[in-house]
Design a protein around this nucleic acid. Sequence first.
DNA 1: GTAACCTTGACACAGCTTTGATAAGGTTGA
DNA 2: TCAACCTTATCAAAGCTGTGTCAAGGTTAC
Lengths: 126, 126
Amino acid sequence: MEALTIHEAAQTTGWTPRMLRYIERIGLIEPARTESGYRQYGAGELQRLRTLRELLAEHEIGLGDVAFALRLRRDEALSGAVDSWLEAEPQRPEAVSADEWLRWEQEKHARIIAALTTNETMETAA
Amino acid sequence: MEALTIHEAAQTTGWTPRMLRYIERIGLIEPARTESGYRQYGAGELQRLRTLRELLAEHEIGLGDVAFALRLRRDEALSGAVDSWLEAEPQRPEAVSADEWLRWEQEKHARIIAALTTNETMETAA
DNA sequence: GTAACCTTGACACAGCTTTGATAAGGTTGA
DNA sequence: TCAACCTTATCAAAGCTGTGTCAAGGTTAC
């Protein structure tokens, strides 16, 4: 059974061997090893390495972000805690109609503009 | 009215005014403003600032991580892309049937040559 | 009317992340 | 055997994060 070595995998995916080791270290792609410890990249891993590049480029995110998303997915307590913190967005009329949301956004903008253009335009906006 | 200024909010939550502005800048907590632009921290925001501290401490994550989780939650395309990347289990050589693997082996050399001579990414006939 | 706040913006700095380079040593295959 | 790989570990540099501090100017409250 053969697979690509780290150098070959790097060449076919556009990463460097250094980065392949880094990607493994942060838990994103962990190739199998030979008995003597050589990394073996199979077809699936090569595909994932390529799509990983696209993912980063298309959404302007970093490897660390993907690693955090992985951690979120694996650590149920963490994702629950983060989710419940994010859930509690204050002051915002959540779960309301779209036009109410829009009105809220407009008022927020008005507040900011009022702040920027030196007052007396709006009164409390409530 | 029971809205605190940034200094007061900092004191009751354990953050510094500087950090409150930073937390706002990365989109985590955006307090209302007075007409003249002063930040107003209400009871809900104070609570969120306190629980934010706990969240970071208990799970050893950073503000940037929470900001990314927020971005994931707001950007449906991003979270879909990240999720589907994470979803794809790496199909190792072991998981590929024998004749598929043989075909893979036969094409291996051509793949490497192609990757070296053109910068195009090859599509794998998955 | 002035002290004590607030605003944004900028400079700065430690520490972490990302990436490369290099070293010392093991494995492979012609 | 020997070239050309591979491994881990370490040093290094560029860039980003988190945080302090200060400046220039507007607002509030006594």
